[in-house]
Nucleic acid binder design. Structure first.
Lengths: 236, 236
DNA sequence: CGATAAGTTGACATGTCTCAAACTGAGTGG
DNA sequence: CCACTCAGTTTGAGACATGTCAACTTATCG
C-alpha cells in the first residue's frame, strides 16, 4: 500500500511562488516539483499535462511502454500484476500525492488503473531529464521515491509471507487509516474506501470470503469499529 | 530474489582503461562505476573500500543507519525483515554484481547478512554525490537499480500472494538457475546453493517441512533433476 | 420498486502447518 | 579408518486455517 503524503515529498513546488496552477497545487510540496526553480515552474506549467483518468481505466498497463511520470493530485489507483492463467495479485494502492512511473520503461511491470475518477499531472521523463540538468535534486527525489516504493513492497512481502489472515486484514486497515484517514478522536480513525472487497482480498492474498469473515471477527474484537462499502473506522 | 549480472549494470567501469584493481574487476561493467570517467576511477580506487564480510555477519541491520552503497564482487547475501515476535521473512537474495544500499538512510528497512564469506566494494553516498556532479549517469543508474529491486519485489509479492507451494518452489529454483546457474546442456541448469533450506522456506513463505516435501514432489515430476545441500540441477 | 452487482454466511474440502521422530552427511577425535 | 557428534534435512500422522462452492442478504441505481 502507498503511504500518501506525510513523510515524503513528490515533485512540484514553486520556490519563486508563481501563482499559476502549480502554485495552487495541494500536493506540490510533497512532489518532485518542489525541486523546480521559478523558471522550471513556468516551463512545467506549459509542458506538463494534467489528465483525468476515469474509474476503471488504466493509465499504465503491464507489458506496455511508459515514458511518463505521473503525480496523483486527485483520486486513487490500484496496481496489479497477472499470472498467465488470469490470477490477479494487487501489488499496491496509490493515493493523492503518490507517484507512478518513476522510471521510463519499454515494459511496465504492472498495470495501474483508477479506482475512481482521478486526476494526474504527467511529466515526460525526457522533460525531467532536461530539468534535472539545472535542478539536480529532482533525481535524488526520484531515487528516494523509488526506495519508498521498494520498502512498502518489502512490508507487503512480510505481510504475505508471515502474517495470518487476521493480521493481514488488521495491518491493512490500520495502515490505510494512518495514511489517508482522519482522526475522529478517542483513538478512532476514519478512512474512505475507494477499492472493492475483491481488490483488498487480492492485495492481501486472501479469498473474498475469508476477508469478509475476518472483517466480522475484527469487528467483534473491536479493532474495526465499523465498515461499509465506502468507509471504515478503525480503533488504535 | 536478485537477478545477478546479465541484464543490469552496477556501478564500476573505466572508460579510460586504467589498469588498477577496478580495471580488473569482473562486475565492473555491470555496476555504477561504468559511469565513472578516468578521473573518477582513479579517485575511486583511493576512496572506495574493499571489504570482506564473513559468513553470517551483517553488513546492514534493520533499523540501523547506513550511508554506503555496496557492490557485491564475491559471495552472496540474504535480506530479511523480522516481526516483533521474531518471525522472519527473507525478502531477497543478493549475488555477485548486485547492489545493496541504493540510498543512504537513518533506518535500514532490512538486514543484509552474508551467506558465505563475501567481498564487497563500498562507496559512501557522500562520495557518490560528488561523482554525480561530473558523471550524472550515476544517478540514473541508481534509479534504474532501485526500480529493478522494486520489480523483483513485486514478482515476490505475486509469488507469495497467488502461487501454490509447488509453484513457489519451482519458480524459485528456475529463476535462481536462470540468474546464477550454468548450462549443462539438454535444458539442464546447475546452480550452487549458498542458502539453507530454512532460508529458502522463509523466502517462499512456507514451512521447512513443506519445502522439503515439495522438493520431493518436484523431483518425481522431473522439474528438479537433483538437489543436495550445496547444489541444484533443474530441467527447463 | 425491480434489477443487478456487491458483500455475507454456511457447510464442507483440502493444502499447509505442527509436532515428533528418523535420517544424512560433514567434521572430529580416537 | 572407524565410531561419534551435531546441525541440517527428510518423513510421518494428525490438526487447523483458509479455500471452495452455493445460497442468501444488502446496497445501489435506474
Amino acid at each position: 500500500m502507498a503511504s500518501s503524503i506525510e513523510t515524503n515529498q513528490a515533485l512540484c513546488n514553486s520556490r519563486g511562488e508563481s501563482p499559476g496552477l502549480c502554485g495552487l497545487c495541494d500536493v506540490r510540496d510533497h512532489s518532485v516539483c518542489v525541486e523546480f526553480g521559478p523558471r522550471e515552474m513556468a516551463q512545467a506549467e506549459r509542458t506538463m499535462a494534467r489528465r483525468t483518468v476515469a474509474r476503471k481505466h488504466a493509465i499504465m498497463s503491464e507489458g506496455e511502454p511508459n515514458d511518463s511520470l505521473f503525480v496523483v493530485t486527485q483520486g486513487s489507483f490500484l496496481l496489479s500484476k497477472y499470472l498467465e492463467d488470469g490470477r490477479r495479485q494487487v501489488t499496491g494502492f496509490i493515493f493523492k500525492g503518490d507517484l507512478m512511473g518513476v522510471r521510463p520503461t519499454q515494459q511496465s511491470a504492472y498495470t495501474a488503473e483508477a479506482l475512481e475518477d482521478s486526476l494526474v499531472c504527467t511529466f515526460s521523463h525526457h522533460y525531467l531529464d532536461e530539468v534535472a540538468k539545472t535542478a539536480p535534486g529532482v533525481k535524488d527525489r526520484l531515487i528516494a521515491r523509488g526506495q519508498n516504493e521498494y520498502h512498502r513492497a518489502q512490508d507487503h512481502i512480510v505481510l504475505l509471507g508471515k502474517k495470518t489472515a487476521d493480521e493481514r486484514v488488521s495491518s491493512f486497515f490500520i495502515q490505510l487509516a494512518k495514511s489517508i484517514g482522519q482522526d475522529l478522536g478517542e483513538g478512532r480513525l476514519e478512512a474512505p474506501l475507494s477499492m472493492a472487497r475483491q481488490d483488498i482480498a487480492d492485495y492481501l492474498g486472501l479469498r473474498l470470503e475469508t476477508l469478509s469473515r475476518t472483517l466480522g471477527s475484527l469487528k467483534s474484537k473491536g479493532i474495526i469499529d465499523s465498515i461499509s462499502r465506502k468507509n471504515v473506522v478503525v480503533k488504535t
